[in-house]
């Protein structure tokens, strides 16, 4: 039995630790030990689901030990984690019913497989995002439109390019100690083909020896290249970058062994991280901070 220890806090800043453990070739059964977990954001939740699915590829469904603290399991419940985990982990996580439309949740963990799912996400988030964006983040009421467009485009990335299902989740937090502000965190994850494989047939030849995870991600992120020859394609990520930049937020994409990011002044994360542990698919993290001034 391979035990993957989930730290007390799991968010976008320390997910690499889990990627390193989860991506191992060891085919022995896996236990995700989350008993000590006290704090987790949507990136952490989607990572647990993705890591669980990767572990299940060995042929044995992984197990998960849920957090000992009731407020943490309650929060996971409200975020729809148990419901999403039911088909992945062997026991425990999937035994509870999903709570419907918890009032403090921006967007529960939602599977994204088809375009209809994207419509559902946009529908659902509009009902709740308005109040959270305007009161917690102090964005104008109309920001719910841009927020919905970001979610739509980021979810379509899964449907159009990943060739596999994924999930999206979002929540708002008060980062009083960390940043002195509220933030909204959006996480999107899939276990699909990743950016390199998605772009390879169309673009690898022109990059020659330089072709790799970093080149592929830079081509999509910075240049707006996609596997489609159509001029209108590739706008999604570019427009998300622009809007997140206007709100002074973070946008990062991890795919293969690389993470690329647009980072504002308040973040110390590097724009490019290479040589990470290989993990299938793509993971997108967006953090939108409360407006100041």
């Amino acid at each position: 039995m391979r035990v993957i220890e989930i730290p007390r806090s799991l968010d976008y800043r320390n997910v690499e630790h889990i990627y390193e453990q989860a991506a191992g070739d060891d085919s022995s059964p896996v236990l995700f030990d989350a008993r000590r977990l006290r704090w987790i954001d949507p990136n952490g939740m989607l990572l647990l689901l993705a890591a669980g699915q990767v572990a299940a590829r060995s042929g044995t469904a992984p197990r998960i030990s849920l957090p000992a603290r009731q407020e943490v399991t309650g929060y996971l419940e409200r975020m729809g984690f148990h419901h999403a985990a039911a088909g992945i982990f062997r026991s425990g996580a999937g035994t509870r019913r999903r709570s419907r439309s918890a009032s403090d949740v921006l967007l529960e963990i939602t599977p994204v497989t088809t375009n209809s799912d994207v419509h559902d996400v946009v529908d659902r988030v509009q009902a709740r995002a308005g109040a959270i964006l305007s009161t917690a983040l102090r964005y104008p009421r109309s920001a719910v439109v841009q927020f919905s467009v970001i979610l739509s485009e980021v979810c379509q990335n899964i449907v159009e390019h990943a060739e596999a299902p994924g999930w999206v989740a979002a929540q708002a937090y008060n980062w009083q100690k960390r940043l002195g502000r509220h933030v909204a965190v959006i996480a999107v994850s899939d276990l699909g083909c990743g950016f390199r494989a998605s772009l390879e047939a169309e673009h690898a030849a022109r990059f020659g020896d330089r072709w790799g995870d970093a080149t592929a991600l830079e081509a999509a992120f910075l240049l707006g290249l996609t596997r489609f020859a159509d001029t209108g394609r590739g706008q999604g990520i570019q427009q998300i970058r622009k809007q997140v930049g206007r709100w002074q937020g973070i946008l990062s994409i991890r795919s293969g062994t690389v993470r690329i990011a647009d980072t504002p002044d308040w973040s110390s994360r590097p724009p490019l991280e290479e040589g990470l542990t290989h993990f299938p698919g793509s993971q997108i993290n967006i953090i939108l901070p409360e407006r100041t001034g």
Binding site: V122, Q126, S148, V149, S152, E153, Q156, G232, R233, Q235
Partner: peptide, 11 residues
Amino acid sequence: VRILDFSCADE
């Protein structure tokens, strides 16, 4: 129309 995203506007 409430929300018009870029992919749809393109199409």
